[in-house]
Amino acid sequence: MNAPLREDAVRYQGFSPSRVGALVLRHVYLLRSSWPRVLEVIYWPLVQMVMWGFLQSYLNQQSGMLAQAGGTLIGAILLWDILVRSQLGFSVSFLEEMWSRNMANLLISPLKRSELLVALMSVSVIRLAIGILPVTLLAIWFFGFNLWRLGLALGAFFANLLLTAWAVGILVSGLVLRNGLGAEGFAWTIMFLILPVCCVFYPVETLPEFLRFVAWSLPPTYVFEGMRALMFEGNFRADLMIRALAINGLFILVAGFVFIRLLDSARRAGTLLSLGE
């Protein structure tokens, strides 16, 4: 028989936006209290944009294909940064809980696994906005490149990159939960594993035949191909975005499943009480 609730006991509820908000608030407080964290979020996208921007300016002075290819460099690097920064925003927020030895407190609170993940997704968007928004505006000022000019297409690119970043972030978080902070290196490096095959700077046709299948199994490839189609031909490839969305849906489902399995594995191994130590 279940014990009766005391009058003032808070009641059980399903998915709670309020609990998601509580965890988001925790990370907003963290960012507000630490300017080095904010600087870290901004400085790398800024450095990338400036470096690739100068290269693009140089290539634009050339003629033919080189100039055409150069025209997409800043766009490619900004979209790549959206992907990397979103994943890092997710993973670093997760790691913050591990570094501060707070994860056990969260896991014994009423916060559900789904709420934890949605909160980390929300924080990744906040961190991305802090890092990328000023850089896109500076790109207009420095190099006359306006990412926002892409309009609705940018929305489709952004959504797909964000979904991929979250799927990877969920996977990395599961690995860290299961294996402890020894696995945190994945958070910083895993995205660069797919950099050569998701064709950020060159078309898929550049890859050898056997790698093209791998490339087309990664949603970011569709985004970068879509960006080139838009910038070279003025053609928004909705078909590419829909395919990317479908693969992303699958990625998120698989990542969520793996995360739950890794969390259960950590509970079986009894490592959650000593997390962060």
Binding site: V10, R11, Q13, S16, S18, R19, G21, A22, L23, L25, R26, Y29, L30, S33, S34, E96, E97, S100, R101, N102, A104, N105, L106, S109, P110, L111, L273, S274, G276, E277
Partner: peptide, 25 residues
Amino acid sequence: SPYVALPHRLTVRQNLRVFGRLYGI
């Protein structure tokens, strides 16, 4: 438990606010 901690960079009030909301107070 002394083996788990609260986020160091948050003030005491901010920490309690976060956990108060997590527990639906």
